[in-house]
Design a protein around this nucleic acid. Sequence first.
RNA 1: GGCGCUAUCGUCUAGGGGUUAGGACGGAAGAUUCUCAAUCUUCAAACCCGGGUUCGAUUCCCGGUAGCGCUACCA
Length: 494
Amino acid sequence: MPEPIHANSSLRVRFAPSPTGFLHVGSARTFIFNWLYARHNGGAMILRLDDTDVERNTQSSVDSIFDGLKWLNLSWDEEYKQSERIELHRKTAWAIFEKGLAYRDFTPAHAGDAEKSGVQGTWLFNPGARELSGAESDRRAAAGEPFALRFRVPRETGQTVRFSDAVYGDQVKAADDIEDFALLRSDGMPTYHLASCADDADLHISHIIRGQDHLTNTFKHVLIFEAAGSTPPQFAHLPLLVAPDGTKLSKRRHGPVVSVTTYRDVGFLPEAFINFLCLLGWSPKDNRENLSLQELTDVFSLEGINRSNAVVNFKEPAATPEETFDPKAVWLNAEHIRGLPMEELSARLLPIVQGAGFSVTPEKMLRVTPLIRERIKLLCDVLTAADFFFVDQLPPYDPAELIPQKGDAAMALKVLTRAREVLANVEVEFKHDPLDQALRAAAQELGVKAGQMFQPIRVAVCGRKNAPPLFETLEVLGRETTLARIKQALRVLK
RNA sequence: GGCGCUAUCGUCUAGGGGUUAGGACGGAAGAUUCUCAAUCUUCAAACCCGGGUUCGAUUCCCGGUAGCGCUACCA
């Protein structure tokens, strides 16, 4: 399996989703692998909407696929719609027919379904149609009788069809085991197999990187390419992504966790999501896990792809977002969050906070960000981790929270009263070190432990026990807000 | 039913005829700290089964089993 190392203008890959739903995580991974392969090798990335199934395609699906792709923020170089290329598909089909490699099947659609679904399995072909004489076929067509055009698979001659897959190796199949698949439907529309191959040939696709569910279809595709007089491209099939129960990911069964936009909406960073998806079915083989897009592009190769399906380890009945998603995805997201420059993280957090109805300035956000960066795993966690920085009035909390470890209400009262005095003193600058010194001194003076001093203050200003470090928090909150909240806590305590 | 693909800790994976089978997530314990995180240390946790080849197989071959895919005038 030779793989081009140098930048290569003839290397062309494509991602070809069919718009029958949202952008699925499996499709996203296929897109990402194609993109990485193209960018690694200096080739072109083509986006093609495989929309030949008019019955099932919807505009909302097209929109949602673009939504997902846009969020991933990976560009493509050319864009096509199959529905605008139908003439090419038909031309290709009829050229195959002219060579005697396809025949008309006048059997009404779905006529064989009852037999097909029986225990015997499927018919490989319909002898009556396959062996219809050319004259008879022409006559019935001329009379206006509808027909599907089927590929005449060269059977009973002991032939084999073969191709070499960059991931699965050499593949061989007896032609006898390949059914006479349709090229054109009786309404004249091309089938997926035909349209896909005709376009791949016409667009000079050099490498087809797609899901393993197409591995056995590839024999049909090789037949089409050859019948159409083209050389089949290089194939690379990807192991499938499956749910924890081993079944394929489906929105109906597994819910929103299979849709890319769900990850966007709970605050995954696209680069972290891409990183996570890359680790499913591919490995850089050097124990690295946290990889930037540039690093992924640099090291990506088809050799790193493995052959067994990978489980996306999400939890079925969703509680909190953090419990829902694959823990490794969440961890990687936290890693990427910590790796982001402070200004950039802050800029990404800002719209989320504002979108939740808080009024924050970019300046304030930038001061808050370092305090929560190590405490959030998903961007949306900012709303629960930093809410108290943005509200005027703290939501009600249990006054019992104000009572320190091994202390009582009296101690809380004593601590907060003293804290209020200390913090009201304009001599004490509202900066980390002076606050640290002043409050520790106060603790000593009162004969309480530092922790017993800090905890009531923390709860008073944050409204809860678990929060960022105290002095930095006070610094950002400012004297006025701090005093107001301590005053309120005192009132609650009495 | 037919045809095909796959099989290493719970999950993602590395490895490969002789290894203490490596890493990561998650889990457990501990250190640190003003809480929570982050960080650090430690621990538990795997080669599907049976045959063959071989001095020796988890690794190679065959069979079984299981899972998955295809078997549409869906893609």
